[in-house]
Computed example of a mutant assay.
Amino acid sequence: MTMFGDEMRRLMAEQGVSLRGLAKRVHYDVGYLSKVANGRKPPSVELATALDAALGADGALAALAVAKERLPGTPLDPDAEERLRKAVQQPRRVDTAVIDALAATLAAQRRLEDAIGSVPLVEPITTHLAVIEDLVLDARGPIRAKVLDVAAQWAQFCGWLHANTGTRSTARTWYDRAAEWAAEADNADMVATAWSMKGHLAWMTGRVGPMIGLSQAAQRPARRVSPGVRALAAQQEARGHALAGDGDATERKLDEAQALAARAAEHPEDEPAWIYFYSPDFLTMQRGLAYRYLGRHAQAVELLTTGLAGLPEELRRAEWAAWYLYQLAVAHEQAGEPEQACAVAAEAADIARQTRAIRLRVQLQRLHARLAATWPTLPAVTDLGEHLA
């Protein structure tokens, strides 16, 4: 509720709309709106939709309201909130209950990001980390390793949010912090994940050499890192080899990732919580993406389509899943199938609008420009342009 109210007040300030003026626009009582804005009342999806229209929020408030309904356990219970307040006031009194509360909150925030995208979470997660850093500085004795462990997970998630919203230097800083805290906590899975995420960041900036090297570094402590974490790094290395045009290395690492994923599926309880999204369908999409980079467009279309169809509905509407829809649209374009490319791109655009995924919308606009240059009179291309506008 607080996140919804924060975003509602931010939009009001951005639009220069008073609470009374907003109440007139949406035909709701001003007192009730005040309680919603200050987190004292939960918003209905109907109210959130009306506020979206009044404030030009492109579905962001409705997404928050829907996510609240899907994730009723997201807010901390009063006891957990009180423990966190006391921990902030007296950091040396942190106990396992506080750590458990931080871990539960982070798990909920990860799934909330699947529903509403990265943009609304950047500020609140960064603010949380300012508090967590204070806890890290003051933690000592047997509890310190546990504080560092959960703090590293928060730092890795914050790095992902910043990378996904375009502030890559800040993302790199948080990934480094995650690796540092995880190393002190002796959490090999998170150390490897931080290196792998830095490899992902290198991929985002077009640096194929570091992408491959960092992905390899994430796989080296094989005896201590879970098969699932190594599988993620292996498929990312495969993607780097595909970008470099090395088909044999691509196939070898994809097969290795598949074998590791099968091992992870045998003992899911041994895998870290932050790779909850990893599944055979996700790996199928990775193979499809690698094949697209290798120019094997028909196979890429088949694999990306199959992988996306296998995702749970709540993940298929996630911002990161929409990016794979974009990749599928590009594969259709490269296979000479403009109508299919436009249909898939329009679906991705709907998710990008709802999650305010600016980077994805720019990529979709570039795709449309290419389609318009090649098929300028095709009605589907015209329709996609209007949809994006």
Rank of each mutant, 00 (worst) to 15 (best):
Q156V: 09
A48S: 09
V136E: 14
L47T: 11
A67K: 00
M8I: 13
K146T: 04
A372D: 09
K198W: 01
E123A: 14
S196Q: 13
H368Y: 04
V150I: 15
A234N: 02
A264G: 11
V122I: 13
P338T: 09
D186M: 06
D79I: 14
E180F: 03
G141R: 09
L148H: 08
S34T: 12
A139W: 06
M1L: 11
R223P: 00
L11C: 02
A369V: 02
Y293K: 14
D149W: 10
R296A: 12
P227F: 01
D186T: 12
E339C: 06
R370F: 03
Y326V: 02
T74Q: 13
V17Y: 02
R207L: 07
L289Q: 09
I358F: 06
T74N: 06
A188H: 12
A171D: 05
A87M: 08
L303F: 10
A178G: 10
A242K: 03
I132F: 08
T305Q: 14
E302G: 04
A261R: 01
D114N: 14
G206N: 08
R296V: 14
G73Q: 10
L84Y: 05
C342Q: 00
G228E: 00
A345W: 06
M1D: 08
A369Q: 13
P91K: 02
T250A: 03
T306D: 12
G228V: 01
E69I: 12
P312N: 08
Q365R: 11
P124C: 15
Y28V: 15
A242T: 07
R93C: 07
H27A: 15
L214S: 03
M204K: 12
T74D: 09
W160K: 05
E113C: 13
L303S: 07
V191W: 06
G336Q: 01
D246V: 11
E113Y: 06
H162R: 14
F282N: 08
D246M: 06
A349W: 04
L315W: 05
G159Q: 10
G288H: 05
D58H: 11
V66K: 09
Y293M: 12
G39W: 03
S226N: 11
T49D: 03
A238S: 12
P142V: 12
E14P: 00
S169G: 07
L243E: 12
E271Q: 15
L11Y: 09
F277C: 09
F277D: 04
S118G: 00
A130Q: 14
E256V: 10
A331F: 02
Q235Y: 15
